[in-house]
């Protein structure tokens, strides 16, 4: 599903965010990307959404080299990736339904189908009946659930999350993690960037540990899913 081959990334100011990073994420696999603040976790996710381009190496997603995708075709890649952000990135002027429906509107889904799929996604994250509420009237945990519903509503093949539990207490973090595990159970590949030690200690998924842009650990998980060579 994902393959990073000797990927380096340098920002315009000269800061080297990633240094020759290589790893694979198999189809249907769930892995954690961990490391200290500034280790390069967000940069790595940005390479997958083509918000940044690598300085060298190749980033393969479903066999496609993302470094070579032209600007006019970026949208095709992004439509197949669901992203959950730490700050939720919900639109405050739009209600829960409209927020979750946004990816479906973008791909031009029929309105009746939009209604069906938004309700299903909200039901999955435990927010049935909250369609007409506005983000500001929801708790932080509920807002994150809406963000997750929006990320999965268009049935992407890859789910990315950037510090999804960063603003949540341990109980809520566990609930959110459970949701990612549920989606993974139905075959959605997931890469979750986090430095939440409690979260990492409570599951048996593979960890990719970054330190100052270098991938220092690609440990295999207990379930035996293979790590990259």
């Amino acid at each position: 599903m994902i393959s990073f081959n000797s990927v380096s990334m340098r920002y315009d100011d000269g800061f080297e965010a990633l240094k020759s990073v290589s790893f694979d994420l198999a189809e249907g696999e769930m892995a954690f990307l961990t490391g200290h603040s500034g280790a390069g976790k967000s940069t790595l996710l940005k390479l997958l959404t083509i918000s940044e381009r690598p300085a060298s190496g190749e980033v393969l997603f479903n066999g496609l080299n993302l470094a070579r995708v032209s600007e006019k075709n970026i949208y095709k890649v992004r439509r197949d990736i669901g992203v959950v952000y730490q700050n939720h990135r919900l639109l405050s002027a739009k209600n829960v339904f409209e927020n979750v429906a946004l990816p479906l509107r973008i791909i031009g889904t029929d309105y009746r189908e939009v209604v069906k799929r938004v309700r299903a996604a909200l039901s999955k994250v435990g927010l049935s009946g909250s369609e007409k509420k506005f983000p500001n009237s929801l708790s932080s945990g509920e807002q994150q659930r809406v963000g997750i519903a929006r990320a999965v509503v268009s049935k992407p093949s890859l789910l990315l999350a950037d510090e999804p539990t960063g603003n949540l207490d341990p109980d809520l973090s566990r609930d959110i993690l459970k949701l990612f595990e549920d989606f993974n159970q139905v075959g959605v590949s997931s890469l979750i960037a986090t430095h939440d030690i409690n979260l990492l200690d409570k599951n048996n998924k593979r960890r990719l540990t970054l330190s100052h842009g270098v991938l220092i650990d690609k440990s295999a998980n207990i379930e035996g899913q293979s790590a990259s060579p």
């Binding site: 949208y75 890649v77 992004r78 439509r79 990135r89 639109l91 946004l102 973008i106 791909i107």
Partner: peptide, 16 residues
């Protein structure tokens, strides 16, 4: 700006 940036990230085309 925030909404537009989000739409780009969700896969919206420029024309959309």
């Amino acid at each position: 700006a925030d909404e537009i940036e989000l739409m780009f990230l969700l896969g919206a085309t420029k024309s959309f």
